[in-house]
Nucleic acid binder design. Structure first.
Length: 289
DNA sequence: ACACGGACCTGAAGGC
DNA sequence: TGCCTTCAGGTCCGTG
């Protein structure tokens, strides 16, 4: 499920269940996801209080009252669901677990929070807060695209001197945090930029970011904000913690629309699918240059 | 620097 | 009905 809008949707769904609440019981139903779960994770979490639930790039960050952070990544197929606890459904006596339910948190808020991940590309880690910024997982993460930091100048700087494609540059988490295959395709279409164009062509000119870079920064922010407002995109999985589908997928202009007409007014082009860096790229060759 | 293939996993969908 | 291939929202690693 997870690009920035989906992860942010999950964060908002988990916040009332987890922020300010304690882990009363934790069940790990297998020892590993993509990586082994943290040593004695259940023990170490039990009794801890979540001070805040944050997000950085595609990582969920539960700040704990002992100075550690529970870092959670959803991989390709991870999801959380939040249910009301009842006596028959506490961890350790979880009689109605679904396939691929791997970790269960029983919170003092009365919520039962279950992590489900069929492909197990997700992972969890416990890291001291003081080491988070320099931890290998976080150290090289680029600018957050929501908020005010991302603008044409930042983009132009990030792209300077890069011969790699715009698609690859935008997918690179070291430059901009949280974009993935869908939203890169969508942002580039909004900006009328070819995913094949060299990133360096948007770099600073004469000390100022190009108009294209400024436009792209605005379109990235817009598409992400709209997607968050829609509760993310739901393709094969549920994005939201209450089981409801996000609906931004109905707004895709190019993603997964190979062979269909370009939705830019007056363009008349046809959406193409190509492969870049091993991933499908959808774009309109007519209006994206 | 960068492209590419492969790795990690499961499941859905399509072709035959 | 099956069996096979391909593809999927992510990231990491090795090899050119």
């Amino acid at each position: 499920m997870p690009e920035l809008p989906e992860v942010e949707t999950v964060r908002r769904g988990l916040e009332p269940a987890m922020a300010g609440a304690r882990f009363e019981a934790v069940e790990t139903r297998r020892p590993d996801l993509r990586f082994p779960l943290p040593e004695r994770m259940a023990e170490r979490l039990t009794g801890r209080r979540v001070e805040a639930l944050g997000r950085r790039a595609k990582y969920l960050l539960a700040d704990l009252d002992n100075g550690e952070v529970l870092v959670m990544h959803l991989g390709m197929s991870g999801s959380f669901r939040v249910e009301e606890r009842d006596e028959s459904r506490t961890p350790g006596a979880f009689t109605r677990a679904l396939a691929h339910d791997h970790v269960v948190f029983a919170m003092s808020s009365g919520a039962l929070v279950t992590y489900n991940d069929p492909r197990r590309f997700g992972f969890m880690a416990l890291i001291p807060r003081s080491e988070l910024a320099t931890h290998p997982l976080m150290r090289h993460i680029g600018v957050e695209p929501l908020g005010n930091e991302l603008d044409g100048a930042v983009l132009a700087q990030a792209f300077a001197g890069r011969s790699t494609s715009l698609k690859a540059a935008l997918m690179d988490q070291r430059l901009i945090a949280g974009l993935g295959n869908i939203y890169v395709c969508e942002a580039l279409h909004r900006s009328g930029l070819s995913p094949l164009r060299a990133a360096g062509t948007l770099a600073t000119r004469a000390g100022k970011p190009t108009a294209r870079a400024t436009r792209l920064a605005e379109d990235i922010r817009a598409v992400l904000q709209e997607a968050v407002a829609a509760g993310g995109s739901s393709l094969r999985d549920h994005a939201q913690t209450n089981g409801e589908l996000g609906y931004f997928q109905h707004t895709f202009r190019v993603y997964d629309r190979e062979g269909e007409p370009c939705l830019r007014g007056g363009c008349g082009g046809t959406v193409r699918r190509i492969t870049q860096n091993g991933r499908s790229t959808f774009y309109c060759p007519r209006c994206q240059r």
